[in-house]
């Protein structure tokens, strides 16, 4: 069944993509899918598409802005895939995934793909295995991948590892400057958007964020005002995203290389499972710590 799915995926069958995303979301066949993607990647040698994460508090307008950004990019002729995370109940495992409500409905447009994902609480505001879903969407050929986190606020910083560019949304009249000192998010953001810029207080919010960013030790971060309601600032936002040093082609290449290398290593280890097994067992019995285990694994590879 999986082989059939992967073959259909290779022929750009959208239903196969949808099913593979489901399998990944459930944590099934992860290694097989990784290996298949790695093989396809090295055959195609396409540059990895930019992965842009949008994060911020609940109600700040993430879904809306993702939708507007997707429409803007479609207008520029770029195909877009959206992974939209909403929270899953830790008690029942249930989830109400409503991000599509605020996203463009373009049933005839095959250049837009939207997938709603349930994020387990405590999992850093994104669904599990999102990294592999991103690779699936990239492998399918989407030009841009937008990742919307659940409405999390402070400290959810896992997106940094998943995305090339992290956009933090804030809105007017939310908290004082101290709120920003608390947030771990400002440290991972590449671009800060003062969203709902058509509302009163947006300029003050912008100046507050700017002032905070001038404190010693802060990185240079672009701050801009965007209004989804009035369709203002979208082009500027996309330009700012592309201008981020994170999206430097060399950084992208290095990440792509590391990802590939990881695949190669996984394949080699799979071949040597007989010899890797004992190392894993000793690590599980706490006879080795991670560093020692890593050294042993390296030795195995070199030999």
């Amino acid at each position: 069944m999986l082989d059939d799915l992967l073959a259909r995926f290779g022929k750009r069958d959208r239903l196969a993509l949808a099913r593979l995303l489901t399998l990944v979301a459930r944590g099934e066949h992860l290694d097989a899918i990784r290996l298949a993607l790695a093989a396809a990647d090295s055959a195609a040698s396409r540059p990895a598409p930019p992965v842009v994460a949008l994060t911020g508090n609940a109600g700040v307008g993430k879904s809306t802005l993702v939708g507007k950004l997707a429409e803007y990019l479609r207008g520029q002729g770029q195909s877009v895939a959206v992974l939209a995370c909403d929270p899953q109940s830790p008690l029942t495992g249930g989830a109400l995934l409503g991000d599509r409500v605020r996203m463009p409905s373009r049933p005839d447009d095959l250049g837009l793909y939207i997938r709603s994902l349930a994020a387990v609480s405590g999992n850093q505001a994104v669904a599990e295995h999102v990294e592999l879903m991103i690779r699936l969407l990239a492998g399918f050929g989407f030009d841009v991948i937008l990742l919307e986190t659940v409405g999390a606020g402070q400290g959810d910083t896992a997106v940094r590892e998943l995305a090339d560019v992290v956009v933090l949304l804030v809105q007017p009249e939310t908290g004082d400057e101290l709120q920003w000192e608390k947030a771990g998010l400002l440290e991972v953001a590449d671009v800060v958007v003062v969203h709902k810029a058509d509302l009163a207080g947006a300029e003050r919010m912008e100046s507050q964020v700017r002032e905070l960013l001038t404190l010693p030790g802060c990185r240079e971060i672009t701050v801009l005002r965007v209004s989804s309601t009035k369709q203002q600032g979208l082009a500027e936002l996309w330009a700012a995203i592309l201008a981020c040093p994170r999206h430097d082609a060399r950084v992208g290449d290095a990440r792509a290389l590391l990802r590939r290398a990881q695949q190669v290593l996984a394949e080699r280890f799979a071949d040597r499972v007989q010899r890797v097994g004992p190392v894993v067992d000793r690590w599980k019995r706490h006879e080795l710590d991670e560093a020692q285990a890593a050294d042993e694994l390296l030795q195995l590879l070199i030999r």
Partner: peptide, 25 residues
């Protein structure tokens, strides 16, 4: 949702085409 399902709700005024696209994707 409370019974543990993952519910995807795309909102009001959907066209049949949009519904089918949502189900597929």
């Amino acid at each position: 949702r409370d019974a543990g399902f993952h519910v995807i709700y795309p909102g009001l005024w959907q066209s049949p085409e949009a519904v089918v696209r949502t189900v597929a994707d």
